[in-house]
């Protein structure tokens, strides 16, 4: 495993634990679709929430949430719509959140930021 993949995995693990501690029910991890993968899928009450987790070990090049560009957002939406269609969830409450994790050099949690409803499809 490449070092950067290791960072990603570590971030997703931290995010998952964070969600569990907040009362979310995690239903999928790294769900593969033809367009890519969804990092985490969880349920908060009635609402199905998709998570894009971004992890970095340095904020020199901006916070991890800045890495979710418009292009990335489009791909995330595509993945989520694919999942929602497959599970027939399109008429239910859905949401896409971003979790931005910053780690220190020893891969310990430094900052975790949860942005609710961060990505909105542009019709």
């Amino acid at each position: 495993m490449r070092p950067k993949d290791l960072v990603g995995r570590r971030g997703e693990e931290i995010a998952r634990k964070f969600l569990l501690s907040r009362g979310y029910r995690v239903i999928e991890r790294n769900f593969k679709t033809p367009f890519g993968e969804i990092d985490l899928i969880a349920e908060e009450g009635e609402c199905t929430v998709f998570f894009e987790v971004k992890t970095r070990i340095s904020e020199t090049f901006g916070p991890p949430s800045a890495a979710v560009t418009e292009d990335k957002a489009c791909r995330v939406v595509k993945n989520c719509v694919f999942y929602a269609q497959k599970k027939k969830l399109l008429e239910d409450a859905l949401r896409i959140d971003v979790i931005a994790v910053t780690l220190d050099q020893g891969l310990r949690l430094h900052i975790l930021k949860h942005v609710r409803n961060a990505i909105m499809p542009e019709k």
Binding site: A84, L90, D92, L94, M120, P121, K123
Partner: peptide
């Protein structure tokens, strides 16, 4: 205002 993928059109 309905359920579904959040969007504003």
């Amino acid at each position: 205002v309905a359920n579904g993928m959040p969007c504003f059109s």
